Every structure is written in structure tokens, then in C-alpha cells.
Computed example of a mutant assay.
Amino acid sequence: MPAPVNMFKKALAQGNIQFGCWAALGNSFTTELMGQAGFDWLVLDGEHGPNDLLSILSQLQVIEGTDTHAVVRVPVGETYMLKQVLDAGAQTVLVPMVESADQARQLVRDVTYPPHGDRGVGYALTRASKFSTIEDYGKTADAEICLLVQVENLKGLAALDEILTVDGVDGVFIGPADLAADMGHIGNADHPDVQAAIMEALARISSAGKAPGILSTQDGMTNDAIAAGALFVAVGADVLLLGNAARALASKWQATKT
């Protein structure tokens, strides 16, 4: 029996837009709720969310019971971190702050079994192989792993064309907040210069045959990104959805006080 087909990776390869949402609250209860909401994918955020390996594991378990695909963002592109989340059952990983083709090539090795990569061969003990019940896991897993890299500063943008030549990188995500900050516009990803850089980068990614990705909570930017070729598009975040709704509700009733 082979490794499960990565339907998210398959959809991107077919050019089908996948709408997602950030899951940064760091617990399985809210992530299960988000998984039932109808998004194509959720980011389990290990970079800025209060997540560790065990909390990511529990969220992978509850998402498996939904139609939503789990994308795990590791805090940094370290070999051991990628090995751990893949062994926990993630099939798609998102790696922040990729700034060179050499870094991208190492990440490909990190998610690939020998002889072509460096991923540790311990799958007999792991959830990824359903604890040894997927007999051909080791021979088939590489093809179902989806590697997404984040380009989110000027150094990364300068290296983008070279990064796009790296086989094994399935998609490139442009990080608006960090890019805006590096361009001198922190907190203002709407700045015309930032928007121009984002849209131009998405078009380059698309032209290179990779899947472009973006996070946008504004419809105008989202539509522009899709027009530029974006295929995996996060349109919100659980923290923002809860926070905005809670503040609006509190404000509504506080305003009725005399």
C-alpha cells in the first residue's frame, strides 16, 4: 500500500485555486472547528502561533476527520523540525524566510528520503506510515510531500528566479508583512511599492511553473493576487476572525450603556 495521495499538492499541480486560513490559536478544539468551516487548507502555525510538536500532532489528528488539508509551518527550516512534523503525519510543510537557492535545495533534501535526501528513515515507528501499516511508505512518500517555501524579504526576492529553478519546491509563498517591513513600510502591506513587488513576484512564480501563494485578508488584494496567478490563497486567520467578532460584539452592547 502506498502513501496517501496529497490532494492539496495534486490540486496545485492541476492549477486549481485552493483557499485557506491560518490556524494560529494552537489548540485542537478550535482547529477542528476551523477544519469543519469549508476551507481547502489550514496553516498550523509553528512560527508565530503557540505551537509545539505535540500540539501540531493533535491538530493533525483532528483535521484528518475533515475535508481540509493541513499545512504545517515550521518555526525555521531546520532538518530535525521538518523530520518531526513529517513523521507526525504532515504531508505539506511551509518554511519561512527562504533567501537562497542553496537553502531551498537543502529543504528539498530535508523532506526527501535517501539516497536523494536527508530525511531520517524511521517511518516504521511513526504516524506518517500509520505505524507500519502503510507497507510501501518509504518508497512512495517523497512523491506525496509538498514543499512550500516563503520568500518574504528583499534578499529572498533578489534570489527568487534562482529559487524557482530548484526541483522539489512545489510552491512559493510571498509573505506580505515581512516584505513590507523590509521595504521600509512595516504595518503597511497596502503600500503601492509593496503591492507592486508582491504581484510581480506572484507572476514570476506562476511563469516558472511553481504554485504561487499569499495571505490576504482584503478582497481587493486577494483578487489582484489571483489575477497575478496565486493558487494557494489564505484569506483569513482564526485569531483575527475571533478577535474582530468579539470586539464588534462587545462594542455593540457596550454602546447601549447609559
Rank of each mutant, 00 (worst) to 15 (best):
A3T: 04
V5Y: 09
A13F: 08
N16Q: 15
F19L: 15
A23F: 08
A24R: 14
L25D: 03
L25E: 07
G26C: 04
T31F: 09
G38C: 06
V43H: 04
V43F: 06
L44G: 02
E47V: 02
N51H: 15
D52K: 08
S55H: 04
S55F: 10
S58G: 00
S58P: 00
Q59I: 01
L60G: 03
G65H: 11
D67T: 12
R73T: 04
V74F: 03
G77K: 05
Y80E: 13
Y80T: 13
L82G: 06
K83F: 02
K83P: 00
K83G: 10
Q84D: 06
V85F: 06
V85M: 08
L86D: 00
A88R: 04
A90V: 02
L94H: 01
V95W: 04
E99R: 14
D102K: 14
Q103H: 01
R105Y: 05
Q106E: 13
L107M: 08
V111I: 12
G117R: 01
G120Q: 01
V121R: 10
A124W: 05
T140S: 10
C146T: 11
V151H: 06
N153W: 09
E162N: 13
I163Q: 06
T165P: 02
V169A: 12
V169F: 12
V169L: 12
G171Y: 05
G175E: 06
M183C: 08
H185Y: 03
D193S: 15
I198C: 11
M199D: 05
G213S: 08
L215P: 00
T217I: 14
A225D: 13
I226H: 03
A227I: 03
A227D: 15
A228Y: 07
A230T: 09
V235H: 09
V235M: 09
V239D: 00
L241N: 12
G243K: 14
N244V: 07
R247D: 08
Q254G: 14
Q254P: 00
A255K: 10
T258F: 13
